[in-house]
Computed example of a mutant assay.
Amino acid sequence: MSWIGKLAGAGIGYWIFGWIGAGIGLLLGHFLDRFVGRIKRVGGRLLEVQQTFFETTFTVLGHVCKADGQVTQAEIRAAEQIMTQMRLTKGRRKRAIEAFNRGKARDFDPDESIRRFVRVCGSQPTLLRVFLEIQIQAAFADGQIAPAEREALLRIAHALGVSDADFSRLEALLAGHYQRGPGAPTTAAALENAYQALGVTRSATDAEVKRAYRKLMSEHHPDKLIAKGLPDSMVELAKERSQEIQNAYETVRRSRQANT
């Protein structure tokens, strides 16, 4: 317990108003000490969330990429791309690589890692979803998710409290980006991905589609995510997810306009 505010308040109060002032100053100093203590606890908690998010992101990333027995060059490039998007310093990039390599190790325990992650970050469901999105993004590095990787991702999703339906929505959101170019899905498949990414069906009204879109954009707003504990370095990733949500909405909106 800090006595700095109490002592300072009592001293200043006594100097100005005597013993009555000292009592008032002591009381005000008490509230100041409590306020400062709360700020320190909140700051320490936020730092713990950020460090845990960073560490677990890359260890689990290594585990997911190794789930099918090997880590491909495409997956390594995907992990490196994430590091580049995060604009990591040389030191933090080294830490990220070390964490990724620990996750690849045969004796790595993903369940324990996820349990600790949930203990620290579980009060912020949006952070859990962003974490899972990053894992799915890396798994899509080869253009599609291998069965063993999808099994690992589903196990992680369940440990995070993410339902199969929400997992499918996140998978569709990322598929809209990683399945473009040669071998890209048909227009119909792309539209289906867009609806699934927004979490609505084709039968949804325009108002329901817009409401789902706005909800997702709000959840992925970088400033809100940082306030909840997303490391500053991951702002670019949050912006990329927002762009994917925007793309999904525009795909649905254009389709509906063309059919009116």
Results as ranks from 00 to 15, higher is better:
Glu240Phe: 11
Gly103Leu: 04
Ala188Glu: 13
Asp142Pro: 05
Gly199Met: 04
Val118Leu: 11
Ile24Ser: 01
Arg38Leu: 13
Glu133Val: 12
Ala148Leu: 14
Leu174Pro: 00
Arg41Asp: 12
Val64Ala: 05
Phe117Met: 13
Val118Gly: 05
Phe17Glu: 12
Gly13Asn: 01
Ile97Ala: 06
Lys215Asn: 07
Gly122Glu: 07
Gln124Asn: 12
Arg169Cys: 05
Gly91Trp: 11
Glu75Ser: 04
Leu225Ile: 10
His158Ala: 14
Phe100Ala: 07
Ala146Asp: 03
Gly91Ile: 12
Ala148Trp: 06
His158Gln: 10
Phe117Lys: 04
Ala172Pro: 01
Gly5Thr: 11
Asp68Asn: 15
Gln85Val: 04
Pro147His: 12
Gly21Arg: 09
Gln81Asp: 09
Leu216Glu: 02
Ser2Leu: 08
Lys90His: 13
Arg87Ile: 09
Gly229Asp: 06
Thr251Ala: 10
Val130Phe: 15
Glu48Asp: 13
Glu208Val: 08
Thr56Phe: 02
Asp107Met: 12
Ala146His: 10
Gln137Arg: 11
Arg241Phe: 05
Asp68Ala: 11
Ile4His: 14
Ala96Leu: 13
Ser255Asn: 09
Gly161Asn: 01
Arg155Gly: 08
Arg92Pro: 01
Gln70Thr: 15
Ala204Asn: 02
Ile20Arg: 15
Thr126Asp: 14
Tyr213Ser: 02
Arg92Leu: 14
Ala175Ser: 12
Glu75Lys: 03
Ala227Ile: 00
His177Asp: 05
Phe108Gln: 06
Gly18Trp: 12
Arg34His: 04
Gly143Arg: 09
Gly18Gln: 07
Val118Ile: 12
Phe100Cys: 03
Ile134Gln: 12
Ala146Met: 06
Lys104Gln: 15
Thr56Tyr: 00
Ala79Lys: 00
Arg155Asp: 01
Ala189Arg: 14
Thr72Arg: 07
Gly161Ile: 05
Leu153Gln: 01
Asp206Thr: 08
Glu55Ser: 14
Ser242Asn: 08
Leu27Trp: 11
Glu55Leu: 14
Ile76Pro: 00
